[in-house]
């Protein structure tokens, strides 16, 4: 768990004096180095490795074997890159990612925006753990959405792909309303503060020439705030790696693949290992 890269701040909004935060239960300080670049230190004042990618500062408490994952769309001309801000959620970091992967809750939690009754059925889609990239992918996901994005003029059936490239990060690719042949990219980068507390850093790479930056940020923040009350009341609080009393179904296959992948990697920070 220590040997992963984790997001800890927005690169463009680093505080001048170091701000205290938590990473995997350990105190860290995030701020600017003398030269102006990002600096993260641990509780002993030791400088931790840092990266700046996708608008965010990333750090690690260990020695990652792999570089941070890539998002090729981030470099595609014409996209607007949106630092959405941050939401602190009193839930397991793995629960936050799992919720992001769940389509079935759209009509009930994001009513008349990302879903609406009676369009509640999740059609069959494909899920796999890709061995070459060691990532979870869900493809051919389709869902009717009354307002798929700030740029959407009305209800459309939206195509989705989900990708989990790191244990606390998920990337959603969805039909871009103004450019139906392209994918909008919406990410959820999660900083695991403790096993039951996390800082969520959403980031987007969108085709949208009409909306203001403020409108796009507000739209996405509204979605995450709607999710927060659900996330903070999940029982059990940690993500079960044994289905236990839960009855997962076909619609939950992305969540199951994610949990299988965590299990295979022995990633248990924020996970419940025994049956609920």
């Amino acid at each position: 768990m220590r040997h992963q890269w984790y997001p800890v701040g927005i690169a463009a909004k680093l505080p001048d004096s170091p701000a205290e935060s938590l990473l995997l239960g350990e105190r860290v300080h995030i701020g600017r180095a003398k030269g102006g670049g990002p600096q993260v230190t641990d509780a002993k004042g030791r400088a931790l490795p840092v990266l700046t990618r996708f608008g965010h500062v990333w750090t690690t408490l260990g020695t990652p074997e792999r570089d941070l994952f890539t998002i090729p769309e981030a470099d595609q001309p014409g996209r607007r890159l949106v630092d959405v801000g941050t939401v602190r959620v009193r839930c397991s970091p793995l629960r936050a990612v799992e919720n992001f992967l769940d389509i079935a809750h759209f009509p009930f939690v994001h009513t008349d925006i990302l879903g609406a009754e009676p369009h509640t059925e999740v059609e069959r889609y494909e899920v796999e753990i890709r061995e070459d990239s060691d990532e979870v992918w869900a493809t051919k996901v389709r869902f009717f959405q009354p307002q798929a994005a700030k740029s959407a003029g009305g209800g459309i059936t939206t195509d989705y792909m989900y990708r989990v490239p790191a244990p606390t990060c998920s990337i959603l690719y969805k039909t871009s309303p103004p450019r139906p042949g392209e994918w909008d990219v919406i990410t959820l980068f999660v900083q695991p503060m403790t096993e039951e507390l996390c800082q969520v850093w959403p980031w987007m790479a969108l085709f949208d020439d009409a909306s203001t930056m403020t409108d796009m940020i507000h739209f996405q923040q509204m979605i995450f705030v709607q999710d927060r009350s659900i996330l903070e009341n999940q029982i059990p609080a940690k993500l079960p790696l044994d289905p236990g009393l839960e009855i997962p179904t076909r619609a939950d296959m992305t969540s199951i693949a994610y949990r299988r992948w965590l299990k295979r990697h022995g990633y248990t920070y924020g996970a419940q290992l025994v049956a609920a």
Binding site: L241, D242, P243, I247, P248, T249, R250, D252, M253, I256, R259, R260, K263, R264, L273, V274, A275
Partner: peptide
């Protein structure tokens, strides 16, 4: 049939001691 599908989904994850 739908519950047989759910059985497959549950077994794919299984208990922590099993892969």
């Amino acid at each position: 049939a739908e519950l047989v599908d759910a059985m497959e989904v549950g077994c794919l994850l299984g208990p922590i001691e099993v892969w």
